[in-house]
């Protein structure tokens, strides 16, 4: 039986270090031993397949039972490809975020900002055959967090991707262009490669913007591609 084709290793500097000391939460949560190299086997090169029938899409996050959430309505859309530019079709995308005031609909979030009963902050979509996805939501607010004095998270939307294999799992955050808080955020800046950091910032896009309705932001995402040769060295 021939070996499964492995996924390529991450490009140097493009992923954040587990030990990112400016983000205090990493200090007691990163392993001290180096990671143990595992050449990919069938366990890593295949992965779960989610169907919209069993995992119903929630592509409109702006209403609950027809009641509309407060805040600036936005459309976030983009394309998921692998590192070779091939689309990642029919894959599930999970989305969650704070409301327009910068508060999560979550008991652990005690930020003194109002909750919006018409905004739960959770969404789920699937890419089409060309790897494209689209979600309608509310622009999230910035909020303070206890990492350091006067620490504020820039406005962001959380995204979770699966792709075709266990090895392509990706959980990340999308940011907004021109946000002055980005320069001070230890989570965003834990990605040392400037181009890789910039990939996390969405792009304002008139082609996604719907006239008289909502501004559009493009967030394209790249999942690991398969290598041509096994990566054992």
């Amino acid at each position: 039986m021939s070996d499964p084709i492995p996924f390529r290793p991450y490009a140097a500097g493009t992923q954040p270090s587990l030990d990112s000391p400016d983000y205090l939460g990493t200090r007691k949560r990163h392993p001290r031993h180096s990671l143990h190299k595992l050449p990919h086997t069938i366990t890593e090169t295949i992965g779960p397949a989610f169907s919209p029938a069993l995992f119903p899409p929630m592509a409109d996050m702006t209403t609950i039972d027809g009641r509309r959430a407060l805040g600036e309505r936005i459309i976030v859309a983009g394309r998921i490809t692998d590192e070779d530019g091939r689309p990642v079709p029919n894959t599930m995308v999970e989305i969650w975020q704070a409301n327009a005031t910068g508060r999560y609909h979550h008991p652990a979030d005690q930020h003194d900002a109002p909750l919006d009963p018409n905004f739960s902050g959770a969404g789920r979509v699937f890419t089409d055959a060309d790897g494209r996805y689209k979600v309608l939501t509310i622009r999230p607010g910035a909020y303070p967090w206890p990492n350091h004095k006067n620490a504020w998270r820039p406005s962001h939307i959380h995204f979770s991707f699966f792709g075709p294999a266990f090895a392509t799992r990706l959980v990340t955050q999308m940011y907004f262009p021109g946000d002055p808080l980005l320069a001070f955020d230890p989570i965003y800046n834990a990605v040392l490669d400037q181009a890789a950091r910039q990939q996390l910032v969405s792009v304002f896009d008139f082609d996604i913007t719907q006239p008289d309705y909502a501004l559009g932001f493009r967030f394209d995402v790249v999942l690991r591609g398969r290598g041509a040769t096994p990566m054992e060295h």
């Binding site: 991450y10 490009a11 493009t14 992923q15 954040p16 983000y23 939460g25 490809t81 590192e83 070779d84 530019g85 999970e94 989305i95 969650w96 704070a98 999560y104 609909h105 979550h106 652990a108 979030d109 739960s120 902050g121 959770a122 789920r124 959380h158 979770s160 990706l170 959980v171 990340t172 955050q173 989570i187 965003y188 834990a190 990605v191 490669d193 181009a195 890789a196 950091r197 990939q199 996390l200 995402v221 790249v222 999942l223 690991r224 591609g225």
Partner: peptide
């Protein structure tokens, strides 16, 4: 070739999708 998108922490509020 564009490198794979960087990971960011799932954070303390991922339960919204739980």
């Amino acid at each position: 070739m564009t490198a794979a998108t960087a990971s960011q922490t799932i954070g303390p509020y991922w339960h919204l999708i739980e």
